[in-house]
Design a protein around this nucleic acid. Structure first.
Lengths: 90, 90
DNA sequence: CATGGGCGTGATAGTAATACCGGTATAACT
DNA sequence: AGTTATACCGGTATTACTATCACGCCCATG
């Protein structure tokens, strides 16, 4: 296997990313946010629903910028709740 | 075409991302950083050299965390120099 | 009731990311 | 000189991302 399939943990992490983005969107429509961030509505929908667990960095960055959601906070929001105090490997 | 090929601008942006990460790595070996960030050395090499212009969000996040490089700064470092003062859309 | 907007899902298509492999080059060290 | 470590590069294989199309559901409005 040259490209390992995503693990369940990675998919869960993607779900948390999507949930965080969806909350940040609030009452704005998906269409307006997607357009402002430069992506299709379908892509935003899949990211929010977690069906695209590992989107491209700049895709996430554009969304975070558009939604005024700090990237660092977004990354932190994807860490499992049980480990949110120990982000360091050590 | 369903998936538009990356534009030259996007590839340049990827190059800036790679350069920023390479500087942040300093004198550490690629192998140790790649291992600590949970990716193969080949992947890190391609990201640093800009041959992978749009890596996955969590790949970049893991590198930024390992290199103690704030994600927001990293995203800002990818904006063309002529626009580094106006990161906001407005 | 009809219409439209917003959201969700599935299928399809095409490009890109990731990993493994082998080869090459340079430098340090024995 | 030989070995080891690091880095660069090309090719290959497989998965994943992004976009378009099409359909159905819910709700508000006419």
């Amino acid at each position: 296997m040259v490209r390992v399939p995503l693990t369940p943990e990675e998919r869960e992490r993607g779900q948390r990313l999507g949930e965080a983005l969806r909350e940040a969107r609030g009452t704005r429509s998906m269409a307006s946010v997607a357009a402002a961030a430069g992506m299709s509505v379908e892509t935003l929908r899949k990211i929010e629903s977690g069906r695209v667990p590992t989107p491209a960095f700049f895709t996430v960055a554009a969304l975070a910028d558009e939604l005024a959601f700090p990237l660092a906070d977004l990354a932190a929001a994807c860490v499992p709740a049980s480990a949110d105090e120990q982000p360091r490997t050590a």
